[in-house]
Design a protein around this nucleic acid. Structure first.
Lengths: 223, 223
DNA sequence: CCCGCCCGTCACCGATTTGTCACCAGGCCG
DNA sequence: CGGCCTGGTGACAAATCGGTGACGGGCGGG
């Protein structure tokens, strides 16, 4: 589950990003309007959080731009008491708003509600570190990158590793989970699958940084 | 569920739009009569809300135009005490009216009543993006185009995809929903049906833009 | 009775995915 | 030093999958 946050206030931006990351979402940050639009195009996040007051290009304009090509849920961050802003934002197609300052708890609750309403929540928030899995689309997204398509077997393998992110997973167990094999012997299959997966997700497949070989198995690195 | 709201008073329009959006409807806005007619053609909403007093082209004229090609429920917004307007509106085929000012609660209640009466709500999501289904006529209408006749199976398939517009639907689930098959195996049927449906609804069937192949199934594009 | 539509079935193509084999490099140990 | 194991890699073949064209049986309307 990807969320784009655009706010020129670095402190607030990081607070939001931290809260969301902790909750298992993959967060994309930016500090101004034009960048937000560009990142939106590139990442196609599942939800967008926009600060209204940004220098250069306001949240309104960004919202308008996004609405021209997508019905993705948009949440605006407003200053309490600016009723006019609020009405304008909702008029431009924003889905919800939050008055600053707000609590992380409130933020999460509103975001969950928005995603539920948008029907996006089924796409389980399977994410850890810089890896986010989209079970419905059969893709992985590595922080800052474009989604990568995975084959069914690759998806299953990555899902198993993700479920145990940071810890080594026994080869035996991976064989059982991915192929349903009851006994060992078929190490070659796993070898190949890992190899193929690395070609797709590693920056340098010959020096694996994410999917590392561990004692008697493999592990997915977090940070 | 799509609702078109036409009102030249921006504040009122946005209030209505916000109320409806919160209630889960997809809202299409416009501020004058000609635009309303044009958007109606393009979007084929499930319900239309018209202000009577609009500069240029009155709500009456819009209502008349809509009635020439559709029996979609129409609600008029009137100023209290203008009995004559009211009579004229209902005479032109409007289904209900609301005196300004009104409360969001009232608005929602009346809209639900209208939709229930029109039998639109049971008939489920019949429109998304540029695709609108007519279950009675066994036709689809693509934005701006002429209705296309569908066979019963094609209709069922499109209905299933429409109910999950924008998201991928598993082949397995489609098989069960369309044919009532309990188990897999018969992928060939789905292949053919999709192929035949694409011939009818795609501008270029060899490069599907609407009914796209997705991971482990198909999906109907909305944007 | 014939005709057209609907739809299940088969056959084929090209692309993707997956299983298999052969080989290499490095570590360990007798 | 040489055998042996483990993990990585490239290459190839088999299997699968989606798209497409074609055939024909069943059925209802003229």
């Amino acid at each position: 589950m990807k969320i784009l946050i655009a706010d020129d206030d670095a402190d607030l931006r990081e607070l939001v990003a931290f809260t969301l990351t902790q909750a298992g979402y993959l967060v994309i940050r930016c500090g101004d309007g034009p960048t937000a639009l560009q990142r939106f195009e590139a990442e196609l996040p599942n939800l967008v959080i926009l600060d209204i007051n940004m220098p250069g290009m306001s949240g309104f304009a960004v919202c308008e731009g996004i609405r021209r090509r997508s019905r993705v849920p948009v949440m605006m961050l407003t200053v309490r008491g600016e009723e006019e802003d609020l009405v304008r934002a909702l008029g431009l197609g924003a889905d919800d708003y939050l008055n600053k300052p707000f609590s992380p708890r409130t933020l999460l609750a509103r975001i969950k509600a928005l995603l539920r309403r948008a029907g996006t929540e089924n796409t389980a928030p399977l994410a850890a570190g810089r890896v986010a899995l989209d079970l419905e689309e059969h893709t992985v997204t590595l922080a800052g990158g474009a989604p990568v398509r995975l084959t069914p077997l690759e998806l299953r393998l990555l899902q198993m590793l993700l479920a145990n992110a940071g810890r080594a997973v026994n080869s035996e167990r991976l064989l059982v989970q991915v192929w349903g094999h009851r006994s060992g012997g078929d190490r070659q299959l796993l070898k190949q699958l890992v190899h193929r997966l690395r070609q797709k997700i590693e920056a340098d497949p010959s020096a694996p940084a994410l999917l590392r070989t561990a004692a008697a198995g493999y592990k997915l690195m977090v940070d």
